[in-house]
Simulated scan of single mutants.
Amino acid sequence: FAAVMSQPHERGRNVGTVVSGIMVGILLGRTIAGVVGEAYGWRAVYAMEAAFMIPVWIGAARLLPQGVPSTNLSYPRLLASLWPLMRDNSPIRQSMMVQALLWACFNAFWVNLAALLAHGPWQLGSAWAGGFGIIGAAGALAASLGGRASDRLGSRKVIGASIGIVTLAFLLLAGAETSIILLVLGVIVLDIGVQSGLVSNQTRAFAVDPKAQGRINSLYMTATFFGGAVGATISGWLMARLGWMGIVEFGVMLGVIAGVVHWTSAPRQTEELA
């Protein structure tokens, strides 16, 4: 919605602002859920979530502007158009693949953090695991900066930097079993990289067709969360069998694959740099 309402030269900044809000909410939600869950049980977390959605619903209905459809296609035809849209536009495909890999890294860390803290040398409970969401929220503010950088430098440069930052984060996290400082630094660096990548990849995909922003977003977010689901599943298996270093190696491997995808998908000189 923010992308549709934005001028092309400010799309990255505005999308970055919205994504910063989303990610700060996700990460602080982990903190709140950790505290509430430890004190009152997991059911209380879902009850609180349901209660919070009521004022959000009212606020959205009253404050958001009226949207204007960009097409008169029927809903089934819109769904049918998703495959040709992805097939015919390589920037969309590339952004989907890279962000799926980065989100797999993101979930691989956060899904297994509680196990590291509880069963590793730290012996800390769920409230402490949730507390790391506050640290991650600082890194999540990088989404706004990543959006501005995409507007100014071009999204491909920011995507490349984001991949490198995520890979660096897992190298730092290799010491998370022995150093709380490296764990904290790894959380911050990981979230800076993932959130910057989220916005820059999204901005690059959106630039393909201003009239298909909703459909592009559907493709992009489906790939993102599919990658996150795969990352959570595989990393849980690795954590059970190889321990924390299995997670670290998995994250580095995903970062390298994302780098290869990004490098090999560099546009030809005849193509416009996104």
Rank of each mutant, 00 (worst) to 15 (best):
M5S: 10
S6F: 12
S6R: 10
Q7L: 14
E10P: 02
E10S: 13
R11L: 09
N14E: 13
V18L: 15
G21F: 14
I26N: 13
L27M: 14
L27C: 11
L28W: 05
I32D: 05
I32V: 15
A39W: 13
W42R: 14
R43E: 10
A47Q: 14
E49W: 15
E49D: 13
A51I: 15
A51G: 14
I54Y: 11
G59C: 06
G59P: 00
A60Q: 12
A61S: 13
R62G: 12
L64Y: 09
L64S: 03
P65A: 08
P65N: 09
Q66V: 15
P69M: 06
N72T: 09
S74P: 04
Y75F: 15
L78R: 14
S81I: 02
S81T: 04
D88V: 08
D88H: 14
R93C: 02
R93F: 02
Q94I: 10
Q99R: 10
Q99F: 13
Q99L: 09
A104I: 12
A108P: 05
W110H: 06
L113W: 03
A114T: 00
A114E: 00
A115R: 12
L116S: 00
H119Y: 08
P121F: 03
G125Y: 00
G125R: 00
G133V: 02
I135V: 14
A137P: 06
A137Y: 03
A140T: 01
L145Q: 04
R148N: 02
R148S: 06
A149F: 13
S150T: 01
R152Q: 10
L153W: 14
S155E: 01
I159S: 11
I159W: 12
V166Q: 00
L168P: 05
A169S: 11
L171H: 01
L171N: 02
L173D: 04
A174M: 05
A176H: 00
E177D: 02
S179R: 05
V187R: 05
I188F: 13
Q195C: 10
Q195V: 01
Q195F: 07
G197Q: 04
V199A: 11
S200P: 05
N201V: 03
Q202L: 12
A207E: 02
A207Q: 07
D209I: 06
P210G: 03
K211A: 11
A212N: 03
A212Q: 11
R215I: 00
I216G: 04
N217M: 12
S218T: 11
L219W: 02
L219F: 07
T224L: 11
F226E: 08
G227A: 07
G227L: 10
A232D: 07
A232S: 12
T233Y: 15
I234C: 07
I234Y: 13
L238G: 06
L242P: 03
A258F: 01
A258C: 04
G259W: 04
G259A: 12
V260Q: 09
V261I: 14
H262V: 04
R268I: 03
Q269W: 08
T270G: 07
T270D: 09
E271W: 11
L273S: 03
L273E: 05
L273P: 08
